[in-house]
Amino acid sequence: MIKPILPSELILNKDGSVYHLNLKPEQLANTIIFVGDQDRVAKVAKHFDEILFETQKREFKTITGVFKGKKISIISTGIGPDNIDIVMNELDALVNINLKTRTIKPEHTKLSIVRIGTSGSLQDYIPVDSFVLASYGLGMDSTLHAYDCEHILETEIEDAFIKHTNWSNRKGRPYIVKGSKTLENKLFSDNTFKGFTATANGFYGPQGRILRLALQDATLNSKIDSFNFNDLKITNLEMETAAIYGLSKLLGHEALSMNAIIANRANGTFSDNPNKTIENLITYTLNKLV
C-alpha cells in the first residue's frame, strides 16, 4: 500500500487548494509565466484573449487565460529563492500528486516555466533596455542544497567560480544549473543576448550595495564581473533564476529565465523607460510561446 504524504508536509486549504498558491489542479495551465511583482500579473494578462481563472493569496497572484489559442498561467512569485522554493514545490504538487489521496501520481506531468523579470547587467556590452536569456543560473544562496542535487550541477564551473572569487567557506557553496535547452531554442532570437545569470539571496549586501553595513567581501562584484570560464561570463544579477532552474530540473520540468535589463552596473546607467522595456519583453515572450 502506498503511504500518503502527511498533512503536515503537504498542506492544503479547506477547499482542497495548495496552501500558499491557493490553486487547484484544474486551475493551472501546463505553460506558466513567472513574474516577481504581483502587479505585473495583470500587465501580462491584459494580452490574453480570455481570462479563465484568477486568485491571490499573500504575494502569490495567479491568472490563467488563453493567448492565441494557448492556455497559460501567470504567477507572481514575490522576491527571492525562498519564495521560489514554495512556488515550485506547490506547482509540482498540483500536477504530480493526487491531492485527494496524497499520493504521487504514477505518470509524471512536465511543466514549461518561463520567468519574465527585471535585472541589472554586469557587462558593458549588454545595454539597458535589452533582453538576456539565461542559459545558466548561478545560485549564491543555499536553497538548492536542502535537496539531493549533486547530479544536476555544473561542478566544474562552480569550482572555477569559487577559486576565482576566493569564496568564503562561511557562505553556502555556489551552485550552477543549466536552463532548459528546449525553451532556449524556442525563445532565443537576434533580439536577445544569451546570458549567465547570477542569483543573489538579497538586494543590498548580497548584491554588493553598501548603505551603513560593511561587506564581507567588498570586491566580490568586480570578481563576479571578471569571471570567465571558457568564454562564459556572468552577464546579469537578480534574485530568482538559479533556484527556478535547480528545482525545475530536480522535479522534471522545463524552465528558462528572460530578463529585461533596466540597469547596467558596469557603466552606472539606468533605463529611461523601464516599464516600456518590460512591456516589450512580455509581448516578445508571449508570442514566442505560442
Rank of each mutant, 00 (worst) to 15 (best):
E9P: 03
L12C: 07
V18M: 00
V18A: 00
Y19R: 05
Y19C: 11
H20A: 08
N22W: 04
E26K: 15
L28D: 02
I33L: 15
R40W: 09
V44I: 15
V44N: 07
H47M: 04
I51D: 01
L52T: 12
E54Y: 09
T55P: 00
Q56T: 03
E59G: 03
K61A: 06
I63V: 14
T64Y: 05
T64A: 05
F67I: 14
K71C: 03
I72P: 02
I74C: 09
T77W: 09
T77I: 10
I79L: 12
G80C: 10
N83C: 04
I84M: 13
L91I: 08
L94C: 13
N96Q: 04
N96G: 04
I97Q: 08
L99C: 07
T101G: 08
T101M: 01
T109Q: 14
K110L: 08
S112K: 15
I116A: 08
S119V: 04
D124S: 15
S135I: 13
Y136Q: 05
D141R: 12
D141Y: 13
D141E: 15
S142P: 01
D148K: 15
C149Y: 15
C149P: 04
E150R: 15
H151D: 15
A160D: 14
F161Y: 12
K163G: 00
H164L: 03
W167V: 03
N169A: 09
K171A: 11
K171S: 13
V177D: 10
K178M: 08
G179Q: 08
T182H: 03
T182L: 11
L183R: 05
N185P: 03
K186C: 14
L187N: 08
S189T: 07
D190C: 00
N191F: 14
N191Y: 15
T192H: 07
T192R: 01
T192G: 04
T197D: 01
T197G: 00
A198Q: 07
N201Y: 11
G205R: 04
P206N: 14
R209H: 10
I210Y: 13
Q216L: 14
T219G: 01
S222L: 05
F227T: 08
N228E: 11
D231F: 09
T235Y: 07
T241C: 14
I244H: 02
L247D: 10
S248C: 01
K249P: 03
K249T: 10
L250E: 05
H253K: 00
H253W: 03
A255S: 09
A255R: 02
S271K: 10
T277Y: 02
N280G: 03
L281H: 04
L281T: 12
N287W: 05
